[in-house]
Amino acid sequence: SVDPMTYETQFFGFTPQTCILRVYIAFQDYLFEMMQVVEGVMLKKLDGIPGCKISPFQIRKCTEKFLLFMKEHFDKLFAKMEEVLLQLVLNIPKNVLLPEDKVQEQYPYSKEEFQALQDELQQLQQQCRAEAAAEQALRAELEEQKAVKAELEKILQCFDGLENICREHGASNFKESFALLTQSSRKLQDVLKDVEEKSK
């Protein structure tokens, strides 16, 4: 049955009801204080009048009468003031959103939507990690390929070197030259045989 006015408290930093209560207590205290002062002044004055028939008790009765009357009106008037202050001044209308809560209307995500967003983030992170791992593997292979290519090219260079040597020594096609050399060797062998037979 009590409206705690939490949203107003969020803005002001204090509850409106407490503010009003503080004001009420202060005003009431001042009223009582002033009445005490009034009574005090009257009693002091009466003290100075010799043979005065008015007793302090009578003055006290008068004070109580006046105070009761004032307190009654005070309470009635203060209640009206409180109503106005709580409705018009220390109040945040229902259609008003405080600046710190703007995100609530800009991004009204339900539990499911929020979970979906978190899941998506997790998935993206996993994909990024996978891509990073893939990059590592690819670059490792590139390095390996570099070394392998270098070795293979060295071997090819050896073959090229051999062929160059043969070419430098007049054998552009080693296979043909070798065949020719074999042929020539055979011919020479045949000629040698011939010569040996004739010399016998």
């Binding site: 939490t6 949203y7 969020q10 229902k94 259609n95 008003v96 959103l97 809560d101 995100v103 609530q104 209307e105 800009q106 991004y107 009204p108 995500y109 539990k111 929020f114 967003l117 978190q118 998506e120 983030l121 993206l124």
Partner: peptide, 25 residues
């Protein structure tokens, strides 16, 4: 009527996180 705190902090703090999550996404 504008939004008001639901009384469930877990729910209410969601919207505060969303802008960052979207940026991060």
């Amino acid at each position: 009527p504008a939004w008001r705190p639901s009384g469930i902090p877990e729910e209410d703090v969601r919207s505060t996180m969303v802008p960052y999550f979207l940026k991060h996404r």
